[in-house]
C-alpha cells in the first residue's frame, strides 16, 4: 500500500510528465480534427495550423509548469466556524520545544497553570476565538463600493451609446407630434364609452 502511495506521489509530483501526456493527448485530438478538415479542404493553411499547434505544445511541454504548493485536500483540515466548535485538527501541528513543554504541562492539574499558559494552549489548538470570528470585517463596504463603481461605469457606457451609437429618436416622439396625435384621437372619438375619449369633456374642452 505504502509502495503504491509513493509511486502515486512520484507520478503526481512530476509536472513535466503530466504536461507531456496532456499535450500529446490534445495534439492527437487536434490532429484528428484537423486531418478530417484537411481531407476535405486540403489546403496549405490547415497544414500550417497543425505545424503551429505542434510546435507550441512542444515548447510548453519542454518548459513545464511550476507547482508552487500542493495541499492535500483529503486529510482533515483546520477551519474556524461558529457551528463547529472543535475543528478536525488542531491549528498548529508542528510544535516547538517550548510548546511541547506546555503540552506536557497540560497533562498535569490545570488549576496550577497561569492564564497565559491556558491562552497559549488555546491558541495552539484554535486560530480565532469566538469573539474574533464574530467581529465584523467591514468587507461589505468593499463589496458595495465595487458594485457601485461597475454600475457607474455601465451608466457611462449607456450615456455614450445614447450619443454615439443609437440613431436619433423617431419624429413620432416629438412633443408636437404627440399633441397632434392626441387631438386626432379625440377627434376620432377613440373608445368613447370607458376609454380615451370618455375622459375628455368635449363641451368644456378639457380633461374630466
Amino acid at each position: 500500500m505504502a509502495k503504491l502511495q509513493r509511486e502515486f506521489q512520484r507520478q503526481t509530483q512530476c509536472p513535466k510528465r503530466v504536461d507531456i501526456l496532456f499535450c500529446s493527448s490534445v495534439d492527437t485530438f487536434v490532429g484528428t480534427m484537423l486531418r478530417l478538415t484537411a481531407s476535405r479542404v486540403g489546403s496549405l493553411f490547415t497544414r500550417r495550423m497543425v505545424v503551429a499547434t505542434t510546435s507550441s505544445s512542444v515548447r510548453m511541454s519542454s518548459q513545464g509548469h511550476e507547482v508552487s504548493e500542493v495541499s492535500d485536500l483529503s486529510v482533515p483540515m483546520y477551519c474556524d466556524r461558529l457551528d463547529t466548535p472543535l475543528p478536525d485538527k488542531p491549528y498548529q501541528d508542528a510544535l516547538s520545544v517550548a510548546e511541547k513543554d506546555l503540552k506536557q504541562k497540560e497533562k498535569g492539574p490545570w488549576g496550577q497553570m497561569s492564564n497565559e499558559d491556558k491562552l497559549a494552549l488555546y491558541r495552539l489548538s484554535f486560530r480565532q476565538t469566538y469573539a474574533e470570528m464574530k467581529h465584523p470585517t467591514g468587507e461589505w463596504k468593499t463589496v458595495i463600493g465595487g458594485m457601485l463603481i461597475f454600475i457607474g461605469l455601465t451608466g457611462l457606457l449607456v450615456i455614450w451609446q445614447r450619443h454615439y451609437v443609437y440613431p436619433p429618436f423617431p419624429h413620432t416622439l416629438d412633443d408636437d407630434w404627440q399633441a397632434r396625435q392626441v387631438q386626432r384621437m379625440l377627434d376620432m372619438r377613440v373608445n368613447p364609452v370607458e376609454g380615451f375619449s370618455a375622459k375628455w369633456d368635449y363641451e368644456k374642452k378639457q380633461w374630466k
Binding site: 476565538t129 469566538y130 464574530k134
Partner: peptide
Amino acid sequence: CRRLDDLASAIRILEAVKD
C-alpha cells in the same frame, strides 16, 4: 476533555455554548 488532557477544547466548548 480532562481525560483527554485537552484544556483548549474545554474553553472552546464554553465559548460555543455562550454563542
